[in-house]
Amino acid sequence: MVTLEGHIHTVGHCGSSHGLKCDACDRSFDRDGYHCLECDFIIHTKCAFVFTAQETLSKHPSHVGHSLMFLTTGAPDHTDPKCHICGKNTKRLLYHCSICNLNLDIDCMVDSMCSRAPLNMSWHYHPLLMLDVGDHMLCAICGLPGKYGYCCPRCRLMVHEKCASTFDSPDITHPLHAKHPLKLLTHGAPDYTESECHVSGIHTKTFFIIVIFVSSTCI
């Protein structure tokens, strides 16, 4: 059993070889997550930062003046389940204004948080926040639990501040590939290549691939 900071119930690990349908992002891009039997929600481990970032997420520029509450059991029965911002049906995880009886989707809240992000870094195409993401989102460079670091909530990406120095050297030479320098890519493996590391054979599933994976695992 696991405790999610900001949630009153303990949750259990769950997984699926086909991907889990997440009640935060409504997608099945990840096979690892948590399930709360009390609230009956499933959330990807990469999306669990929404629990630790509730204070940052609880404001939206279109609804100034009222505090928004994070709910984990879906829209209240007496309210319209559609998001006040995008008009789509909300999921089990949402933000709610009890004064106005309206609901806001997690995706819209994340987009709003990202729109206020102040940090523009050359190695990522979205502005970033310095955010404590808890222990559930792993650093894309070292693979260790996140805590505090550069965060893109939209991409579910976190990089420790100390690990960001990797980007100071976008080209490296590896002893097993000495003839040509290797270039750092930040958008995943190119379509014309295999996604496995050519040294270890491990799938390069992290956001930063090829050079980062080789340098941290195989050197």
Score class of each variant (00 low, 15 high):
residue 1 M to C: 12
residue 1 M to R: 08
residue 4 L to Y: 00
residue 9 H to N: 02
residue 9 H to L: 02
residue 12 G to M: 11
residue 12 G to F: 08
residue 14 C to I: 14
residue 16 S to W: 01
residue 18 H to I: 14
residue 19 G to C: 03
residue 19 G to F: 02
residue 20 L to W: 00
residue 20 L to Q: 01
residue 21 K to L: 10
residue 23 D to W: 01
residue 24 A to N: 06
residue 25 C to H: 00
residue 26 D to I: 11
residue 26 D to W: 10
residue 26 D to S: 14
residue 28 S to H: 11
residue 30 D to G: 05
residue 32 D to M: 09
residue 33 G to S: 02
residue 33 G to T: 01
residue 35 H to G: 05
residue 39 C to W: 01
residue 43 I to K: 05
residue 47 C to T: 09
residue 47 C to G: 10
residue 48 A to D: 10
residue 49 F to H: 15
residue 60 H to D: 01
residue 61 P to S: 15
residue 61 P to G: 13
residue 62 S to R: 13
residue 63 H to I: 05
residue 63 H to M: 05
residue 65 G to R: 08
residue 65 G to E: 11
residue 65 G to A: 08
residue 68 L to S: 02
residue 69 M to C: 09
residue 70 F to H: 13
residue 74 G to P: 08
residue 74 G to A: 12
residue 74 G to Q: 08
residue 74 G to V: 09
residue 75 A to L: 11
residue 79 T to N: 15
residue 79 T to V: 15
residue 80 D to F: 09
residue 91 K to S: 15
residue 91 K to T: 13
residue 94 L to K: 00
residue 95 Y to V: 08
residue 95 Y to M: 14
residue 98 S to C: 05
residue 98 S to Q: 07
residue 99 I to D: 11
residue 101 N to F: 08
residue 102 L to N: 12
residue 104 L to F: 12
residue 104 L to M: 14
residue 105 D to Y: 03
residue 106 I to D: 07
residue 108 C to F: 06
residue 109 M to G: 04
residue 113 M to P: 04
residue 113 M to G: 05
residue 114 C to E: 06
residue 115 S to P: 02
residue 115 S to A: 12
residue 116 R to P: 00
residue 118 P to A: 03
residue 118 P to W: 01
residue 120 N to A: 04
residue 121 M to S: 04
residue 123 W to P: 01
residue 124 H to F: 04
residue 128 L to N: 01
residue 129 L to W: 08
residue 130 M to P: 00
residue 133 V to R: 04
residue 133 V to Y: 03
residue 137 M to F: 03
residue 137 M to E: 00
residue 140 A to W: 03
residue 140 A to N: 06
residue 141 I to T: 01
residue 141 I to E: 02
residue 141 I to L: 06
residue 142 C to V: 00
residue 142 C to T: 01
residue 143 G to I: 02
residue 149 G to M: 09
residue 150 Y to C: 07
residue 151 C to A: 13
residue 153 P to V: 13
residue 153 P to Q: 04
residue 154 R to I: 13
residue 158 M to C: 09
residue 159 V to F: 11
residue 161 E to R: 14
residue 164 A to K: 06
residue 167 F to T: 11
residue 167 F to I: 12
residue 167 F to S: 12
residue 167 F to C: 11
residue 168 D to W: 07
residue 177 H to G: 02
residue 180 H to K: 15
residue 180 H to F: 13
residue 180 H to Y: 12
residue 184 L to N: 05
residue 185 L to M: 05
residue 185 L to R: 07
residue 185 L to W: 04
residue 186 T to Y: 03
residue 187 H to K: 12
residue 187 H to P: 03
residue 188 G to H: 08
residue 188 G to A: 08
residue 190 P to T: 06
residue 191 D to P: 06
residue 194 E to M: 10
residue 195 S to H: 11
residue 196 E to F: 14
residue 196 E to V: 13
residue 197 C to E: 02
residue 198 H to Q: 12
residue 200 S to W: 07
residue 200 S to K: 10
residue 202 I to L: 09
residue 202 I to G: 01
residue 202 I to E: 10
residue 203 H to P: 05
residue 204 T to A: 10
residue 205 K to Q: 07
residue 205 K to P: 02
residue 205 K to V: 06
residue 206 T to Q: 15
residue 208 F to K: 06
residue 208 F to H: 09
residue 210 I to Q: 07
residue 211 V to D: 09
residue 212 I to A: 14
residue 214 V to D: 00
residue 215 S to T: 13
residue 215 S to W: 15
residue 217 T to R: 15
